[in-house]
Nucleic acid binder design. Structure first.
Lengths: 394, 394
DNA sequence: AGATTAGTTTGTTCAAACAACCAACTCACA
DNA sequence: TGTGAGTTGGTTGTTTGAACAAACTAATCT
């Protein structure tokens, strides 16, 4: 309520943003259509659009088709794709993922950099090199607009609070890059970023209020979209479903967490232990499964059942419109998905929440970060923006 | 975003509501203080207040104290407690709880009506009698403003979708009472109402964004306040944590639900089975525990451990500022609460979410319903309102 | 030519802001 | 103890400015 609009100046600012959001979400779009969508007078929309054009955010694309009963052709408006770009990173275990996007969320470039075994202080220079390379080639009017980092751990107020797979060694990414470039820098939990991706980049989900995105990588966590907003929790730890324990079980010793059953690490460990192997990777698991290895099949059977139970519990807790599974492993073994659905349907008594696999899970995380940092660059943190993820235009 | 303020008329309406909310939340309050709080010019506040006074929502209470450096005394404004009243019901297993509240949420009357063994169609006439009795005595200017019903089950769009303890027999409460009185009628899940109570009636929680209220009655469920809003879920089933199952366990037979371990029914059943007793009540359990009965002690020990695990899981899922326990059983056996906290602390590794017992859990549910239906009566569903729960004034 | 639609220009509207005022208080000081 | 300077609460009359409305231009169709 304290952020509510009260006077005409604030109203004006909000209306400018509403017009920008309309251009963003429905580009290419004409002024008259914006006027109808927002229930604002067409002269008002024209005036507001002028301000946006002066700021450089938008541009005219040319004329559209006239209506079939006669009348002047509309002028089509769109986001200025040459305004600037964002840089978005994902600290994977084996790879650092790097993506460059324009203001509209289009992918300008993507690459993976091998960082297996490197410390954060060895990775930092690699990031700097990528930023410099892109800056050298850049031809946009405003250049770098913002940077996002997807963290496989928990984040609070742009600080990493827990990072099980990569020691952050007191490195303050936000501070370092804000100082260096004077642009918004944003750290976000990887599952949260994936959830934002589903909300913002997926046209099918446009009307959905509540979504759970279960991210299964080395660990397991969930990103929560509640009432169209990302729910981070008071300490940035909402959706840490991997830590859940069974209720009513025996309390001898420490209780086993969900993560002990159905993270990729858990599966690999289980197979390694039974086979006496070492340093196995996801690819090894996929190969063994496809070869019909019994140990692997049994491990993945437990995995499938556990994921089904997790989905069932998440559905009971959050009651979403849909549950997404963001898992490179499932992406490579899509035949497991129907099994998960079957076990889930077996458990759930009445309401069955649809389950969907995220395709190209690496992209999802990066694009989610892009959506968040682009909002910050525009000063429109609260706006509903639909990104299109159109393929490269430059 | 579609409900965003766009033109001056809407802005004006919203500002009127903001002034009303200020009066509601800070009564008694002066115009000048509202002006400062809302960053609106004092003459603007005066004009907006005039409208509210004409509508009868507010009234002047007299003069307050002048500041100690001189100056005119402020005129203190408040909600008109004689404007009207709401009626709020809670369908308990043994009792129908009935509460009458004024526009400000003050309790005007409260009673319990024995309904053990009655069907919904036998209960309805009892409700009608209560409504008539109160209407006959009423001296407010606008009379009945709204009716709320707390349901021990799930609700979607004012319809009961699941009711394990009371067969609703196709009775449509909302339709029946809306037709009869032409006022807002509202059905809400009992745990949700309890959560709203904690948000709206508890000054300590004023600044808290995220709260989980775990309601342990015959069943077990949670009410979720996320980002200051009640999260009902897409199908009205969010927070149905009683249905959760263990992950990674054996899948022989149907998995045991949380509810099988730590609802009141579960405890009573367990004790009854072991003792060969029948028709035990909560009071019997309390008595047996206080007498030192071993079977009861062991059942409640499992209960305590299970509740601790539930709290831990809820904290991981939702990451709230605080967890409330709304449980008549714990209210009667408060010595169990430290045990729950101890087990919880044992399990949680880092962040410990504070646990609080709701006092007078029956009141909580009714007052939560009151808060929701009062908002509807005022047409201020989205406003942040702090109810004071002052004792009777009439 | 007449109908229709997109967008601009020009003047109007009206709720909030502003400025000046009145009302009523405190306190210091004679 | 009485007076006046300073302060605060609230009202009244005027100004302001962003959205609106109407009249316009532009460009299409049949």
């Amino acid at each position: 309520m304290s952020s509510a609009i009260r006077n005409r100046m604030q109203l004006h600012q909000q209306n400018i943003q509403s017009v920008l959001a309309e251009v963003f979400n429905h580009q290419p779009i004409s002024r008259i259509e914006i006027s109808r969508n927002l229930a604002l007078n067409k002269s008002t929309v024209s005036a507001l659009y002028r301000d946006l054009k002066e700021a450089g955010y938008v541009e005219e694309l040319g004329e559209g088709d006239a209506s079939n009963v006669g009348g002047r052709k509309p002028v089509l408006l769109a986001i200025n794709r040459r305004y600037g770009y964002t840089m978005n990173f994902d600290f994977g275990y084996r790879h650092l993922h790097v993506m460059q996007n324009n203001l509209s969320g289009d992918v300008l470039s993507y690459k993976q950099i091998n960082v297996l075994g490197l410390t954060i202080k060895q990775i930092l220079p690699l990031i700097d090199v990528e930023l410099d390379k892109v800056a050298a080639k850049d031809k946009t009017s405003h250049g770098l607009l913002g940077i996002s980092f997807a963290i496989h751990g928990t984040v609070l107020d742009n600080q990493v609070t827990y990072s099980p797979f990569l020691d952050m060694e007191q490195v303050d990414l936000a501070d370092y890059y804000t100082q260096k470039f004077q642009v918004p820098v944003l750290l976000e939990n990887e599952a949260n970023a994936a959830a934002v991706y589903e909300r913002d980049f997926n046209k099918e989900n446009d009307r959905l209020d509540n979504m759970v995105t279960i991210s299964i990588h080395r660990g397991i966590g969930a990103g929560l979209i509640i009432n169209q907003n990302l729910h981070r929790g008071t300490h940035g730890e909402a959706g840490e479903i991997g830590r859940s324990i069974p209720v009513g079980g025996d309390w001898s010793g420490t209780p086993r967490k969900v993560e002990d059953f159905c993270s990729e690490d858990a599966i690999i460990n289980q197979i390694q232990t039974q086979k006496g192997a070492e340093n196995m990777t996801r690819d090894d698991v996929v190969r063994l499964f496809n070869e019909g290895d019994e140990v692997t099949k049994s491990a993945l059977n437990l995995f499938v059942k556990s994921v089904a139970a997790i989905i069932y519990n998440a559905a009971n807790n959050f009651d979403p419109d849909v549950v997404f599974l963001n898992s490179p492993l499932l992406e490579e073994l899509p035949e497991l998905e129907p099994q998960i659905e079957s076990f889930y349907a077996q458990t759930a008594p009445t309401i069955l929440v649809p389950i969907k696999l995220t395709k190209n899970s690496h992209y999802a995380t990066l694009l989610g970060g892009c959506a968040l940092v682009t909002r910050q660059a525009l000063g429109m943190e609260e706006a509903k923006l639909n990104f299109d993820a159109q393929t490269s235009v430059l």
